[in-house]
């Protein structure tokens, strides 16, 4: 599926950030919450929908399961395509911050 130039939602941005290393769904929820200092709490239901969309777009891919002792959770990792989208969004956000820094009257 082709990449979109539209801005990513905060949830998608954080999920892609969390998947800089292979991780299962619950790990993504915890990491997202930790990175946003508890501000962004993703529910499992929301995360499932987001992961389904990201898999469909080819931005992430499954990469095995955790061990039986960890409950056989599906693992995911970001793809090259997903990494490109994340970098493009990062640059867009940097531009927003830079323009804010230059133009907001303090």
């Amino acid at each position: 599926m082709k990449n979109t130039n539209a801005a990513l939602t905060e949830a998608i941005y954080y999920i892609l950030l969390a998947l800089q290393e292979p991780m299962h769904g619950y790990g993504i929820m915890q990491k997202t919450s930790a990175m946003s200092k508890g501000r962004l709490v993703l529910s499992a239901g929301t995360l499932y929908g987001a992961i389904s969309n990201l898999l469909e777009k080819g931005w992430i891919t499954p990469c095995g399961e955790t061990s039986e002792t960890e409950g056989r959770r599906k693992m995911y990792k970001i793809t090259d395509n997903g990494q490109e989208v994340l970098m493009a969004e990062f640059q867009r956000l940097e531009e927003l911050v830079e323009n804010g820094r230059l133009n907001i009257k303090k």
């Binding site: 769904g25 929820m29 499992a44 599906k74």
Partner: peptide
């Protein structure tokens, strides 16, 4: 299964 693996 996914939700159950996320503590729900």
């Amino acid at each position: 299964s996914f939700r159950s693996s996320c503590e729900d």
